[in-house]
């Protein structure tokens, strides 16, 4: 696979950028990594990144793969993705500051601008959260 800096794959920036790197791509599946750093937008006073941070991490992982596929297809602009629906989200544990999460995602077919996403977040081999999602990906803002 080709490597792109994450800023070329997703439009989100600090303080709500919730993916560090697109690590692996195979067809319409991918793995991203993200380290929970101090000052994380969704970190609570006990140092855990709360559930909305995990959902955003999955959404941005999907967005990173969509961005990768669009770059590879020759597009110059980064597509913008919006969450349309979250379904069957389960959270088992929230990661803490200093922990690195790996997120695997699979994109379904795109129908009428809507793409189905399956995502799972792991840390040190442990499943933290899983969800299905519908995202709208638009090439123009």
């Amino acid at each position: 696979m080709n490597y792109y800096c994450i800023e070329n794959l997703i439009p989100q920036r600090a303080p709500i950028q919730m993916v560090d790197q697109l690590l692996e791509v195979e067809g319409r599946t991918a793995v991203t990594t993200f380290e929970i750093r101090s000052g994380n937008y969704f970190a609570d006073e006990e140092g855990f990144m709360t559930e909305p941070g995990l959902i955003e991490n999955i959404a941005q992982s999907a967005s990173a793969l969509a961005g990768y596929l669009s770059r590879e297809a020759g597009e110059k602009e980064t597509p913008v993705g919006y969450i349309g629906e979250i379904k069957n989200f389960h959270c088992y544990r929230c990661p803490h500051i200093g922990e690195k999460v790996q997120t695997s995602i699979t994109l379904g077919e795109e129908v009428g601008g809507i793409t189905l996403v399956n995502g799972e977040v792991h840390a040190s081999g442990e499943l933290l959260a899983t969800t299905r999602m519908k995202i709208f990906i638009s090439q123009n803002r």
């Binding site: 969704f42 559930e51 909305p52 959404a59 979250i86 379904k87 069957n88 389960h90």
Partner: peptide, 29 residues
Amino acid sequence: PGVCNIEMIKECTARLTGKKLFISSIKQC
């Protein structure tokens, strides 16, 4: 960000119930 609005729902539910809460699952949003 949609997820910020989810956090708002969680925080308003905490206000309503007087409990500290964790989103264990979302059936549909």
